[in-house]
Each structure stands twice: as structure tokens, then as C-alpha cells.
Amino acid sequence: MNIFRLAGDMTHLASVLVLLLKIHTIKSCAGVSLKTQELYAIVFATRYLDIFTSFYSIYNTLMKLIFLGSSFSIVWYMRYHKTVRRTYDREQDTFRHWFLVLPCLLLALLIHEKFTFLEVLWTFSLYLEAVAILPQLVLLQRTRNIDNLTGQYVFLLGGYRGFYILNWIYRYLTEPHFVHWITWIAGLVQTLLYADFFYYYFQSWKNNKKLQLPA
């Protein structure tokens, strides 16, 4: 464990807590993409299949349970909670996210480190996580007025993978044979997808005005 990875995990944890806080306290998921939340639930479900077979540390297992629990409970809130589900703008959140799942699965079947069931699904979860934010970014462009909590959620979610890139650089420099191109490229693509959001987020923060994404 290094400071970059810890910062990344804490930023990631903060992003899900911000979202759960928003949904649980104000009983609203306006501006939140259910498609992105469903993709993230799939990402964690396929990433953490080894939770029962291998144990690294209390921290590792605890964080996996938190990410699994939070992502599935957010999907449950947005689909089935009587008050929250009414605030979900179904008409705007129309990204065909299943068109993201299939290519990621095919790519994982083609490009992976080992051709085993767990490894292919783990690789699939890496590719899917890289693009899982797309429905949310599209929804933000459409709804335009972004409330603070949703903006913070996307900002933290984008930031965590950025910290992970620093972690991979650190591990590459300190651990021999630490070379994982698949993870690195997927993580880089993921962070780059947030680039324009980050630009407008900082602009709004600097000029102290509401976050507006160009149409």
C-alpha cells in the first residue's frame, strides 16, 4: 500500500458516500444516471469475485464489501424506493449502456493476462469501469444545471483513478516486474474521459459560478 493508492481509495469511498448522502438525506437522485450506477454495480460484482476465495487484508475485504454494498444499494434506491425513484429523470438518462457491456466483454475475451474465468471477468470489469461514467457525463450535459453534490460525486469519482495512476507509477518504480499494461491503459482512458468535466469543474470553481457544461 502507498499513499497514492490510499488517497485513491479514500477519494473513491468519498464519491460513493457523497452520492449515498445525497440520495438518503434529500431522497432525490435528480441528475444521477441510473445507467452509470448499474454499470458500476456490474464492475464491482465482476471485479470482486475473488472476495471469498482470496484474502489480502481486512482493509481490502472491508472496502470491497463497502463498494459492493453501496453500489447495489444506490441502484436499489433509484429503482425501487418509492420517493427516490420518482426523482429519477428516465427520459434524459437514455444512454444505451448495454452497448458498452458487450464490447468490453468481447475485448476482455480477446485481451487479458490469463484466459481463466476469474481473470477474464476481472479484465472485463477494468474495461467496463473505464467507460461506466459515460451515461452520467451525457446526462450532466443534458440536464445542464448540476447540483453541487452530483458535481462533487463526479469530480471525486474522476479523481480516484488519477491517484491510482500515480500509484501505478510508484509501484512500477519500486517493485520489480510490476508491469500491467491492460490496467494502466484502461485507467488512463478512464481518467481522460473526465478531462473536459474537470476543466469546466475548475472553471466554475475558480469563477465561483454554477457548474455549466456546454451543450
Binding site: 473513491h12 472496502m63 509501484r171 510490476f178
Partner: peptide, 10 residues
């Protein structure tokens, strides 16, 4: 081992 470990990450 010559294989480095990746699965210890979240």
C-alpha cells in the same frame, strides 16, 4: 516470484 501482484488493489 517474477509475476508482480495486481489483485491486491481495489
Amino acid at each position: 516470484p517474477n509475476k508482480s501482484y495486481m489483485k491486491d488493489e481495489l
